[in-house]
């Protein structure tokens, strides 16, 4: 073939410069977020060293205090990677706290029976939303918005007031500490880390995970490439519903009560964590590890503001807003570079 002999020149013009390669690297946003986390942690160390910031427990508390957010954000990562969005996360979490508290406190069911029930309800809710999105070709935004209202409304059907949980097995589960040398993790944090590892495996080492990326990259192409796309989409929302319910259970353990207003707007925290973690809102690009850093950054902002002492808690929101804005601009710059 005469053309093969000319290949070197053709190949040269194809490979982009090193700088462009680095900027086009999909891992870059995750590294930026990880770097940001380290810088923020370093700032915390230098400012609040004498107030105990350097203790290992302060670091581990980031995982303990944000375990539920991490689980919810992992679910949201799947959805966003597939090019969709799930607004029902916060409501499902809120509903799960109510559902669990009601069954345990008012109906006297043991928590080990309630846990699978709550997970099944969340997963089924996600499945229904996914089914509607896929089969009626409706925007995920609208369908999950309906889910948001539905689950929040169902909270109030269960009870208008909050139900605090006094069940002994629940409290012992909540207070169990898994010791790590001088510091400890809660059960919730362990569960969250297991979920994270499982999500990483599923996304990178299973056909289902790769289909999620493919659909997010180009849904039409994925269809024409013969991938079973409908099932994938439904599975993604089912997974998100499951993660939300699991996050709801962790939240119940963390706060030991059910309340119709629990976790209002937490879907937005989850989405923010995913985006700050470097996942493109348009889908198809991102890593679940980035989501971990996104959650940690959000958690660290809270800790830093607590350590500062004089700042009010709304500064958390302001800082989150600024970060989110900055990260979306970085994403924009990266995607436009990739196109040229």
């Amino acid at each position: 073939m005469s053309t093969t002999t000319q290949r070197p020149t053709a190949a040269d013009s194809r490979t982009t410069g090193k700088a462009a390669r680095v900027l086009g690297d999909r891992r870059l946003p995750v590294l930026v977020t990880a770097g940001l986390f380290l810088v923020m942690y370093g700032v915390g160390l230098s400012r609040y060293q004498n107030y105990g910031f350097a203790e290992a427990q302060v670091f581990l508390n980031l995982f303990i205090d944000n375990s539920y957010l991490l689980v919810a954000a992992v679910g949201a990562t799947f959805v966003i990677l597939s090019g969709g969005i799930d607004l029902s996360v916060g409501s499902v979490i809120g509903f799960t706290t109510m559902f669990t508290a009601w069954l345990v406190e008012r109906q006297g069911l043991p928590i080990v029976v309630v846990i699978p029930m709550a997970l099944a309800v969340g997963a089924f809710g996600g499945f229904l939303m996914g089914y509607v999105i896929q089969n009626f070709e409706i925007q995920p935004f609208i369908v999950t918005l309906a889910g948001l209202f539905l689950f929040r409304g169902l909270c109030l059907v269960i009870s208008k007031e909050s139900i605090s949980i006094g069940d002994a097995s629940v409290s012992s589960m909540a207070q169990t500490q898994v010791s790590l040398g001088g510091a400890f993790l809660s059960i919730g944090a362990i569960v969250a880390l297991v979920v994270l590892a499982a999500a990483f495996y599923v996304l990178h080492y299973t056909r289902f995970g790769r289909r999620v990326y493919a659909i997010g990259g180009n849904e039409q192409s994925a269809l024409l490439m013969g991938l079973p796309q409908g099932g994938t989409k439904i599975a993604v929302y089912t997974m998100s519903g499951f993660c939300s319910a699991l996050a709801g259970l962790l939240f119940t353990l963390y706060i030991q009560s059910g309340d119709p207003l629990h976790a209002t707007g937490m879907e937005l925290d989850a989405i923010a964590a995913v985006v700050i973690g470097g996942t493109l809102l348009t889908g198809g690009s991102g890593y679940v590890i980035g989501t971990l850093f996104g959650v940690l950054v959000l958690g660290l902002i809270k800790s830093l503001i607590q350590f500062e002492g004089t700042l009010s808690s709304w500064w958390t929101k302001i800082a989150t807003g600024v970060l989110l804005c900055a990260f979306i601009l970085i994403q924009r710059a990266m995607t436009s570079r990739r196109k040229t």
Partner: peptide, 11 residues
């Protein structure tokens, strides 16, 4: 194989 490339550019 169509005129438009039906692949996923992100992979």
């Amino acid at each position: 194989v169509y005129q438009e490339v039906n692949l996923c550019p992100n992979l």
